[in-house]
């Protein structure tokens, strides 16, 4: 015989609760957490290095590198002089709020203004799990194509800002910037779209301004 227990709870409820709790702690500590996502090779690490260079005189910055199993990115970030830690997801394709919390705890004394979480390169799974970040950003690089908002709507729907990277190669690709903006805004009317080139530094100023104002808003009561 069976006895049936009615549950009616969202599967992601545990993760969402942990994420909310983490955000509340971060608010108290005045630490802004940015979750940076993209597919592999879109330029997360290069963009991060530029971002750090633009903001490290104003903010104390920490970086959490999420990777399935390597230290490559953390080593690259450590060269910039900010605190970088490597989180291994142990084969998992995304980070959840619990893993993010462990990373934040590893920074120990939470005197950081800005922590950037470089999520696993993937446009699917990271969109499903709230990490506890204050804002979500994603990078779409020109060679990936302008159809990505159509293919990965969930990712575009949860991001506050979309960085379109590698704009220096626009002349060589059939990439329609207007189409990307239109497709992204259709899914998420509030998304900010900023064209950048992490290699040359083009557009990094506008991106740094966006991030700066977000951090300052978060730190005010």
């Amino acid at each position: 015989m069976y006895k049936v227990y009615e549950i009616k709870q969202r599967v992601f409820e545990s993760n969402d609760k942990l994420a909310e709790a983490l955000r509340a702690d971060l608010k108290r500590e005045k630490t802004f957490l940015l979750n940076l996502m993209s597919s592999p090779g879109a330029g997360k690490t290069t963009t991060l290095k530029r971002t750090i260079a633009a903001l490290k005189d104003e903010f104390s910055i920490g970086v959490m590198e999420a990777d399935i199993d390597s230290e490559v990115d953390a080593a690259a970030i450590a060269e910039t002089g900010v605190r970088a830690i490597q989180l291994h997801t142990g084969g998992m394709c995304h980070l959840d709020a619990d893993m993010t919390r462990q990373g934040i705890d590893e920074f120990n004394a939470m005197d950081l203004d800005l922590v950037i979480l470089e999520n696993v390169g993937n446009l699917v799974c990271p969109a499903e799990f709230d990490t506890g970040a204050v804002k979500n950003a994603m990078i779409l690089s020109v060679p990936e194509g302008d159809d990505k908002p159509l293919k990965y709507p969930l990712m575009f729907s949860i991001c506050d800002v979309l960085l379109v990277n590698k704009i220096d190669v626009l002349p060589y690709f059939d990439f329609n910037m207007d189409a990307v903006v239109e497709r992204a805004k259709k899914i998420n009317p509030n998304i900010q779209v900023l064209p950048i080139c992490a290699r040359t530094g083009e557009g990094i100023g506008a991106w740094a301004n966006w991030l700066r104002s977000q951090v300052k808003t978060w730190q005010q009561d």
């Binding site: 015989m1 006895k3 049936v4 227990y5 549950i7 009616k8 969202r10």
Partner: peptide, 16 residues
């Protein structure tokens, strides 16, 4: 867009 755990059925011995 739901993703819920609706219910859990548990083995029970004897009584109904």
């Amino acid at each position: 867009q739901e993703f819920n755990i609706k219910e859990i059925a548990v083995f029970e011995e004897g009584e109904d």
